[in-house]
Design a protein around this nucleic acid. Structure first.
Length: 243
DNA sequence: TTCAGCCTGTCG
DNA sequence: CGACAGGCTGAA
């Protein structure tokens, strides 16, 4: 319920010249929610949205100077958005625009029901890895979690969605929920840049089974993990125990 | 579906 | 020096 005192842009090159964040000053934050890879600050009349991209960070009361994009000054704290590679996004909506925006991508992977998940899978024939990464179908899964989910489920990333058995879809759905749940519980995956608002690393990186481990031995069958490119993303998997 | 491109840094 | 990195877009 804190009031925003000032929205300060530090890196104008990050925004297009039509960006309007200044109008948020004077409004109180009523709620904070996440959908897929987006974080939304629900103000009284507008919604402020952040996407961290690859290297985005939101830090509380930080005084680090490098790579600052913008800073929100509240009554009792400040929140700085950093983004080294500038692949993140910051947007402001009114509530009508926000509703439309929410409809522009798929349901969050932790909110979708099994029935809906199955329906989506059965209605296309892409590789399952591509499906998991497709934010328009389901949102929230990135390259790390896609590889970890498929390993856990024992499904090859090359498998076509339309050919998956009911049992496999069930397994995939469960592994998706478990893997993402664990990632959240452990505070995310800090392979390199990611930090929470207190500038602390997550701990999921210590739990990785396959991501970034091509050539290492599969933790399940001890044969070397394979690396392929799927949807332009490096994909690591075990070609022996993921069928 | 593939590709370059957006950007900056690290690693070998 | 080139290759690569938690993402996504728009064009071919």
């Amino acid at each position: 319920e804190q009031k925003l005192l000032k929205f300060e842009i530090k890196d104008f090159s990050f925004f297009n010249n039509t960006f309007s964040g200044y109008e948020l000053a004077g409004q109180k934050v009523k709620n904070l929610i996440r959908k897929g890879k987006w974080l939304f600050f629900l103000f009284e009349r507008n919604v402020l949205a952040f996407h961290l991209g690859l290297t985005g960070k939101l830090l509380l009361n930080s005084n680090i100077f490098s790579h600052v994009i913008c800073v929100l000054f509240f009554e009792k704290c400040s929140l700085s958005f950093y983004d080294l590679r500038k692949f993140g996004k910051v947007k402001v909506f009114d509530y009508k625009e926000w509703k439309e925006f929410l409809n522009s991508f798929g349901k969050d992977a932790l909110e979708i029901s099994f029935e809906e998940f199955k329906k989506l899978i059965n209605s296309c024939s892409q590789k399952i890895k591509s499906f998991l990464l497709d934010q328009k179908k389901i949102s929230g899964i990135g390259n790390i979690y896609a590889d970890e989910i498929l390993f856990k489920a024992g499904i090859s990333p090359h498998r076509r969605t339309s050919l998956l058995e009911e049992q496999e879809i069930k397994k995939l759905y469960e592994c998706m929920r478990e893997t993402l749940g664990e990632g959240i519980k452990l505070g995310g995956c800090s392979i390199r840049d990611y930090r929470d608002v207190f500038n602390q690393k997550g701990r999921f990186q210590g739990k990785l089974q396959v991501y970034g481990k091509a050539g290492d031995l599969c933790p399940r069958c001890r044969k070397p993990l394979k690396k392929d490119i799927i949807s332009q993303r490096t994909t690591t998997y075990c070609s022996f125990c993921q069928k």
